[in-house]
Amino acid sequence: MINVVSKRITAYVPDSVYKKIEERCQQEGRTMSSLISFIVESAMKEWEKENKGDK
């Protein structure tokens, strides 16, 4: 069984970015936390793909 532990982070974004995130939350029916987690996880997976051979 895989044990997943979530960590809490704090980030600050400009009002314009916050408003866009808020709008996307409403469109997708997600909470702010859920959407931010999804965006960060997706970006990190993409980054890992792009940097796989850079070790």
Rank of each mutant, 00 (worst) to 15 (best):
A11C: 09
E48Y: 08
K20S: 05
K49Y: 07
I39K: 10
T31Y: 01
K52G: 09
G53Q: 08
F38M: 12
K55C: 10
C25E: 00
K45N: 11
K49R: 10
E50R: 06
P14I: 02
S6A: 14
Q27I: 09
S42P: 03
S16M: 08
V4D: 15
T31R: 01
W47Y: 15
K52S: 12
I9F: 10
W47N: 09
R30W: 03
S34C: 06
D54Q: 12
K45D: 12
S33I: 03
M32H: 08
V17F: 03
E22W: 04
M1V: 12
A43N: 14
I39E: 11
V13H: 00
M44W: 15
S6N: 14
Y12I: 05
E46Q: 07
I21T: 01
I39W: 07
V13Q: 01
A11T: 10
I9N: 08
I21G: 00
I9Y: 04
R8K: 13
V13P: 00
S37W: 01
Q27K: 09
K52D: 07
S42R: 11
I39F: 08
K45G: 05
E23W: 07
Y12E: 06
K7A: 14
E22A: 07
S6W: 11
S16H: 10
K19T: 11
R8I: 06
E41T: 11
S6L: 13
N3A: 12
